[in-house]
Nucleic acid binder design. Structure first.
Lengths: 332, 332
DNA sequence: GTTTTTTTTGCAACCGGTTGCAAAAATTAT
DNA sequence: ATAATTTTTGCAACCGGTTGCAAAAAAAAC
């Protein structure tokens, strides 16, 4: 059907190697030859088959983009940035959805079968052991939104979740709240654990501030709303740090539903700064995660690893900042 | 590095064909042979290289998933459903982001270079000519959320946008609104045009109802909000049909900002029924698009086309329904 | 136990490319 | 003009698999 190398070689009356070289940059071809080949190729509408090529070059330019987070709106932006960034560098994202109980083993094997050059694991809820499995197969991997540890096994790019927790705590303390709480996502998410740890550690320096914590069943609007409704009926705190904006928005909805006023009666600070947090009818005070930097750094790291597979693993952490909107009482 | 067919053949002391057959279903291998090969394969951790295989089988099981819509939250669900659905059938989505002025020609060539078995174009704003280009290259293609025409060139799966427009108009008329308007997205989106057409056509049967229309600069919260602010300052209608939920939500924000009450002063009906439209603090009355059906049908169609590439093109349209929430006045 | 039929197996060619090597051609030096 | 050097080209093997075909082995029929 589509023209092959051989077809072009025949038409141009040259060897297949000549054609191959014409389409390989850095190869030795005379200008005359190149002209001849390019003419024939154009006439046949030829373009080289990447997969056949990959057999000998051992490079597919395919990058596995693995995630299990297809519900948090922020991930649409994540996919947007990743796909654009990768294709700008001539790489191709092979998307793997780990949502259900897709066997991780299975998806690892699958990526091997397609000979991906590397894998980007974009998730804050996948355990480190998962990305480690890739590394053990000598597959370059970067874990974006991964958990920081002082001696990482694989490359990690993201934020310092402990520090983000501290930041939230400081913010609440500075605004004079005396009874605060953490509202986390599903307990197993390591990122949520870290955020709590930082939150608690910071508060331990302020013994006059009462603290508590609880968990929503999922990182979702509904779960955040349900948990906040429960909390409000019992013995609510003055302000809450929600581990994710989507939880925060659920919580906001619960607060309004109970006839309470946000920021006058109950303060809320989120984390992520997703687009809709800035919408006027939500207007959530939150901690901004520098997504663009995180993603472009992840891609840079991946590109670097393609040339240097045994690169020593590093953790790249980016600082967050508080975005002040309307859901916390003003500073004194 | 990783074990190859030959390695397994050597270790098992059999021919490479035998090994190949063991990993090809429907091939003739004795039980004894299969045992032997499987043992050797397990010991070496072998699994076949899909890309090498594809060279002879001419099937990569790669499907190009092409979209230019990485901003509308509904597309996160779209990607979720597509990736899950495809991988359930042993297919792999190769994601192509057409967001910017990525040359469509270019992405078509790229998909050819990776020998994708087919392409799914998921967008309501890409012109029919785009997906046609794929078909012209004999690449199976389905245009999801494409525009319905009575004689489609390529397979189209989606809704009847004209009918959706009528549905919105009927809904407003039945609720007694006497002055209504359409608020569209960027003018070039064919889907938005069709929705307007249906809207106007239905209203033409109700001469007592005044109608008008205008366009937001983009399918975004901000654009919807800005346009609605402008409209409210001039000579607002009693109710608006917004061509997309994300516009509707922007419009809602504008209405509230102007100190007007939604549904008492201004009615709004959207289209899409994205998750957050159901959130209690938004509570948007909207037209539901049966996304799950649209996507699973798209995948089915793609799978069918893999076996029957010259399948006669069809349009599969799914009916929408109004989801009543709180942004329209109650029926009389 | 033969002969016939069916199943299993290996050989070798092929899928669409790349690449080391040596021969051929073009340059440059003498 | 010839010799030395550099560049360009083609040959042939290879990347990791699949598959038509014929030979070998096993099973069924006689």
């Amino acid at each position: 059907m589509t023209a092959t190398l051989k077809d072009v070689a025949n038409r141009a009356g040259v060897s297949t190697s000549a054609v191959s070289r014409t389409f390989t940059d850095g190869a030795s071809v005379s200008l005359k030859m190149r002209r001849k080949v390019e003419k024939a190729a154009a006439e046949l509408g030829y373009s080289p088959n990447f997969l056949a090529r990959s057999l000998t070059t051992r490079r597919t330019k395919l990058i596995g983009l693995v995630s299990n987070n297809f519900h948090n709106p922020i991930f649409l932006q994540v996919f947007d940035l990743f796909t654009r960034g990768l294709q700008d560098r001539g790489l191709r994202p092979l998307l793997v959805n780990l949502s259900d109980e897709v066997d991780p083993e299975n998806s690892l094997r699958m990526l091997q079968q397609y000979s991906v050059d590397g894998a980007i694991v974009a998730s804050s809820t996948l355990p480190p052991v998962f990305s480690k499995a890739f590394r053990d197969q000598k597959l370059p991997v970067v874990h974006t939104f991964g958990r920081y540890t002082s001696s990482p096994d694989v490359h990690v790019v993201g934020i310092d979740n402990v520090e983000a927790g501290r930041m939230a705590a400081r913010e609440l303390v500075e605004r004079g709240y005396k009874k605060v709480a953490y509202l986390g996502g599903p307990q197993l998410a390591t990122s949520a654990q870290d955020r709590l740890e930082g939150f608690e550690r910071e508060l331990s320096q302020h013994p006059d501030v009462a603290q508590s914590h609880s968990y929503a069943a999922a990182y979702s609007f509904e779960a955040g709303r349900a948990e906040m409704l429960r909390l409000l009926k019992e013995n609510p705190a003055e302000a809450y740090f929600c581990a994710d904006d989507v939880l925060s928005i659920g919580a906001l909805s619960a607060v309004k539903d109970m006839g309470l006023r946000v920021h006058e009666d109950i303060g809320i600070i989120g984390l992520n700064d997703m687009e809709m947090s800035g919408w006027e009818n939500i207007n959530l005070t939150t901690i901004h995660q520098p997504i663009r930097q995180i993603i472009s750094s992840s891609i840079e790291l991946m590109v670097a690893m393609l040339d240097e597979p045994d690169r020593y693993p590093e953790a790249r952490l980016f600082p967050c900042r508080v975005v002040e909107r309307g859901t916390l009482r003003p500073r004194p």
